[in-house]
Computed example of a mutant assay.
Amino acid sequence: MKRDLSPLSHDTPGALPSPAELRAQLPLSDSTALLIGAARQSVRDVLDRRDPRLMVVVGPCSIHDLHAGLDYARRLKALADEVADTLFVVMRVYFEKPRTRIGWKGLINDPRMDGSFRIAEGLALARRFLIDVAQLGLPAATETLDPVSPQYVGELISWAAIGARTTESQTHREMASGLGVPVGFKNGTDGKVDTAVNAIASSSHPHAFLGIDADGRAAVIRTPGNPYGHLVLRGGGGRPNYDAACVALAGQALEKGGLPPNIVIDCAHDNSNKNHTLQARVLDDVVRQRLAGNRSVAGVMIESFIEAGNQAIPAELSALRYGCSVTDPCVDWAETAAMLRAAREALRESVAALREGRDV
């Protein structure tokens, strides 16, 4: 498995560059920054119902092979352009993985997948990959797990998620309040939405907390509050929560909390009984809800890669199957394309009618 490593990859494993140093080494061009800014605004427009398209956050459960990841990104860009009149596609680019017990924590934490934890190398690889994806004209989404990581890659992201295990964390609510992107908070692993509703409300307010500045120094971080927090339904407790009744109850919980009823449906995890082959069924149900007039469902998440399923990390990394997830199982590329094309075909007329102000 080839890797294009930056000079920082050869630093002492415990030494980290400052965010400013990494940004200087791997700068973001003005034109690419404009593309990312436009993508962020498109996500906001979807949540504000100014853009009637369905947002689709789709991609590998995690990025472990940069070459396969970029291969996937090129394919997705072509497909995103094909369905752009109806679907707003954002690539899932996850570098940090929360673990229930133990396991590989992602490219940033352990880029060589060998327990060496060369985080400086991982940060450089992650930033370079996000720049490559952005230069394709493809927006990127990620889960924000470590509160320091956004200082290194945050300006390259168009949508962020806070996971089911961290939605209750005050640290993550404070962090989300300062991210310059819409943030989806997942419901708890038990399936309840109250924790996520509280998190969305908390992150909408200003906060002050301990963090680091661009030069890597400890600093008091002051945030303005994030008005674009929203709920991600991912199922929980072994039960799905993507059906119309669960969506309606979730919307009521948001409105009771004084929040917009904006919901994204995660087609994986408990919503598919952790069976990647059922993700298409979840998407079909979401499409039917949209056709029935439910605008509270703003988007979906799909775990997808080049090959279907997943694989264990072998002792010899050369034995890894190309384009196959090493974390949660994914649908393959052919099914991904079929899912998005079918959703586009089903929703195209209703999206066009909403765009023109006609009844649907």
Rank of each mutant, 00 (worst) to 15 (best):
V220H: 05
Q289Y: 02
E316K: 14
G180M: 05
A342E: 06
L259P: 01
S272Q: 05
I108F: 03
P329M: 13
R3L: 06
V247R: 13
L231A: 09
V282M: 14
N310H: 13
A38N: 09
G357T: 05
T336A: 13
V300A: 06
R128I: 05
D215W: 01
A68I: 04
H276W: 13
V360N: 12
H10M: 07
G163Q: 05
D132V: 01
S304H: 02
G257T: 03
C61S: 14
R222W: 03
G178R: 10
R222H: 14
R290W: 14
P150V: 09
R50C: 10
N262C: 03
R44G: 01
E143Y: 04
Q252E: 12
A124R: 03
R128N: 15
L125K: 03
L123C: 05
E143T: 08
L5H: 07
L138T: 14
G115K: 10
G258R: 03
A292T: 09
R222C: 10
L22T: 02
M301F: 00
S9A: 15
H207T: 06
A38I: 07
T167F: 00
G184F: 11
D243W: 00
M301H: 04
D11M: 07
A73E: 01
A24Y: 02
D359E: 13
V360C: 14
R321E: 14
C246P: 00
S158Y: 08
L8F: 14
A161P: 03
G299I: 03
V58L: 00
V89E: 08
Y152I: 12
L54A: 05
E255D: 02
G184S: 09
V286Y: 09
V232A: 11
K192N: 10
A337Q: 15
L249Q: 13
R348F: 12
P7S: 07
T144P: 00
D85Y: 10
L354C: 00
I119F: 04
L125N: 02
T100L: 06
L8I: 14
R23S: 13
R92G: 13
D51P: 05
V83I: 15
L138W: 12
Y228E: 06
T167W: 00
G154N: 15
G309A: 05
P7K: 03
M1L: 04
K97D: 10
S42I: 01
